[in-house]
Structures are given as C-alpha cells and as structure tokens.
Amino acid sequence: MPPSRRQPKVTGIPWDRVELAPVVLVRGKEDLLAERAMDSLAEQARARAREEGTGALELTRLEAATYESGRLSVLASPSLFSEPRHIEIHGLEALSDACATDVLAYLADPAPDVSLVLRHRAGVKGKKVLEAITAAGATLVQCEEIPDRDKGGFVAAEFKRARRRVDPQAVTALVDAVGSDLRELAAAAGQLISDTTGAVTPQIVDRYYGGRVEATGFKVADAAIAGDVAGALALVRHAMASGTDPVPLVAALALKLRTMGRVAASRGRDVGPEATKGLAPWQVDRAKRDLRGWTPEGLAAAITAVAAADAQVKGESRSPGYAVERAVLTVASSRAG
C-alpha cells in the first residue's frame, strides 16, 4: 500500500509553553522570545539528562550560514558514553547548501537521544527545508513580533509569570516610560519584580522611571492634548535639551492623535466600531478620556499641524526644534477647554 501523501501538521506552541521534542522549529522575528524558547529547550534537555542519569548533556550551537558539510551527522552520532545531545542550528534563513542537504538527510533518519532545534527568523530561503520539517511532524514555536498595541499585554504577562500583581495603570505607565522595545520592557519589568514587593502600582513605576517618562514624547503629548500649553512647551524643551530627537516627539503626538481620531470616528454612523479594530481596550478608554474637551474641528487642526511637523523634522525644515514647539503649541491651543 503506497504511503499517504498527506503531510503531518506542524503543532503550534506558544514560546512560553514549548516542550522538548526530537525536532523543534523556532520561527519568527521576535528575537527575545525566540531566545527564551531556545533557552527553555536547552534547560529541559539538561533536566532530562539529570533525571535519566545519562550523563552531562552535550550542547552544540551551529550557524547555518557557515555550516560545514557532515557536521550534523558527526554531532548526532552515538558517543562512547552515550551522552544525550542537544543541537541548535541558528540562522536557517541564511543556510548554506551544505546545511540544507544535511538537515534534509537528518530529518529522514533522526538520531535517538538527540534533540535538534532549528531557528528560522524570516524570509523564504530554505523553503524546501521548512517544508521537510513540517512533513517530519516537528514542533513549531511561533515567535512573531508583538505589535505596539499588545506590548502592555506582554508586560502584564511578565508580572503574571513571576506571580506578581500589577495595576493596569502601572502597565500603561511602564510602556509609556520605557517605549516599545521588547528587551527594554522585559528588563524594566524584571527590575521592578526583583527590586519591589507587593503589587506594582503607577507610583512605583514613577519612582523608578518617572524621570524617563518626563523625557519622552508621550509625556509631551499628554500635556499638549490636555491643553497645558506652558507645561507642554516646558516638557518639549526639557526633552530636547536632554538629547531627545525631535522625530520621536512628533511621532508620539501623531500616535495619540491618530488613536483619538479613530475612537472619535467610531462614534459616527458611517464608520462605527470598525474604526477601533486593532486597538487594545485600554487604548480606547484612554482615548475617550483624552477626547474630553476636544471638538472635531480642533482635532482636525491638531492632526494637520502634527503632519506638517512630521515632514519638517524629517528634512523639510532647518529648525526641527522650532517645528516641534510650533506643533505642540498648536495641539495644546486646539483643545476647546
């Protein structure tokens, strides 16, 4: 009877629930999550070796681009003392022909007592190998980039994994203070977890990162949207004096105004809830609060001013600092009261 042509389906596993398997593919652009998944797999392999009393784990890391022909088969071959082996091949998106050939051969005849972890970041190179991994029934760990609207969820999950309570407002404050870089957010959450006790509140976040908040575009944007002309101008001058580039200052203004515009549009008959698709609930709630005191005309004027400033700070003006100040002044003055 001829073998079935149907390929086994790859099992999708969240990065923080990955379990050791003979072949694991870690795929996606979010390097921090991929590193965590691979570290977890290596630790699981060490733990299994200890539990089974099979000796110290032999762990090898290879780069797919500089891979030498025959290396995988040598590493996977039984050793004199039969130690378990854990092999990682990084950069599968840039694999050499030799690497492709050897991985395909290995998948056809996997070695016992060996766990093989393959890391593919992005792109279509190595498609044949990826298809073979799928056909072999390997475990897939998906580590795609986390969109900005979900960074708060990532931070909240960091505290949950550490069994620490965190106020939703504290999560928002931390994201506003640190920014969208996942490594920095993870490091900031880790610091708060290790250096504090009890529930993490906005006051605690402000104690650790308050100075950083004041030097970011989000603080400037908050003051401008609240109609605080003097405060917004003082903050923007302080931010630029502290070395903050004008571009992210304008970007923060644009982001908040866009969100406000989408939430305002969701109240209209012609657009409705579709306008807020993709926004987190806390973003919608915050935008609703920000919209108090704003008219459609004022919001349109503010958005137009920030769009002009965006072009100016990216090369159309000889004085980007002045362009930012003028945009901030226009935004703060556009609020009705």
Rank of each mutant, 00 (worst) to 15 (best):
L249N: 13
P273L: 12
G272W: 05
A226V: 02
L249T: 08
L235R: 11
G227V: 04
L249K: 14
G261V: 01
A251H: 09
V229C: 09
L233V: 11
G243A: 00
G243W: 03
A232G: 09
R262G: 04
R267I: 09
A265H: 00
A226K: 03
L233A: 08
R269P: 08
A265V: 00
A239P: 01
H238V: 02
G268L: 07
D228Y: 04
P273R: 14
M260L: 11
P246W: 02
A239L: 03
D228T: 03
L233C: 01
T244F: 00
V229F: 05
A265K: 01
S266H: 03
V229A: 07
R267H: 14
P273H: 07
R269V: 06
A264M: 08
R262W: 06
R237E: 14
A232M: 01
A252P: 01
A241Y: 09
L253P: 15
V250W: 08
V247H: 11
R267L: 09
A251Q: 07
L235F: 11
P246Y: 02
A265Q: 07
R267V: 09
A264V: 10
D245A: 15
G243I: 00
R269Q: 10
G227K: 07
R262C: 08
P246K: 03
A230Q: 15
A234D: 14
L233W: 08
D228A: 09
A241K: 13
R267K: 15
I225K: 05
S242F: 02
A251P: 05
G227P: 03
A265N: 04
D270M: 09
A230I: 13
L255I: 02
L235D: 03
D270P: 00
L257N: 01
P246A: 08
H238R: 15
G231S: 00
R262T: 05
S242T: 10
T244M: 14
A239I: 03
G261F: 05
D228M: 00
G261P: 07
D228N: 14
H238P: 00
V271F: 11
S266M: 06
S266E: 04
T259G: 08
P273V: 14
V271L: 15
G261Y: 02
R269K: 14
K256Q: 15
D270W: 12
R237C: 11
G231I: 00
G272I: 10
V263P: 04
A252W: 04
V247Y: 05
M240G: 01
A230G: 14
L255F: 10
A234S: 12
A264W: 14
H238K: 10
H238E: 13
D245T: 12
G231M: 01
A239R: 04
A254F: 09
S266L: 09
L253A: 06
G243D: 01
H238Q: 12
D245S: 15
V236I: 06
A230K: 14
A264T: 10
S266T: 06
V247C: 10
